[in-house]
Amino acid sequence: MQNHFDLFHLPQCFSIDTAALDAAYHEVQNQVHPDKFSTATDAEKRVAMQWATRANEAYQTLKSPFKRAAYLCELNGVDLQTESNTAMPRDFLMQQMEWREALEEAKAVKDVGALEKLDHDLRIARKEEIEQIGSLLDANDFSQAAQGVRQLMFLEKFKEEIGYIFETIE
């Protein structure tokens, strides 16, 4: 089966042209979306649903820098070891602990301003991490990149938690 990059006729690398990705995704969906087959035969409807599902998955994977990085590691035979490898640099862990404390506090006193600052800091940290992973990946250093992806996973999870707390205190 074609990989996600092949599906959209894109070069297999981290720095992708997002406009080209969007255009290719729309082009594929224009061919396969179930809305194009609503009066077709059952066989065609089933195939259309499978294809559109696959196009959506490929697009979501390549659109998100985190998922794209993890996918590239996987394609190049590097196991992310998300469960088994929990070794993290000391600085990174310290930073995480600090943020978690700040998050708990913002939640306890319902401080939207503090939450917004945390959200902002996290956004910068994610951007930096993604840039670093990107240059490692495009230099074919997949095992170092995998370490970065594991760290990024923590940041992604933290982002979700911030979002959830925004919802509960608003």
């Binding site: 959209f8 006729h9 255009a23 290719a24 082009e27 594929v28 224009n30 061919q31 396969v32 065609e44 195939v47 259309a48 294809w51």
Partner: peptide
């Protein structure tokens, strides 16, 4: 479906 996707992207 495979053919139509390939043709569409190639055309693009």
């Amino acid at each position: 479906m495979d053919r139509s996707v390939r043709t569409a992207l190639a055309g693009k």
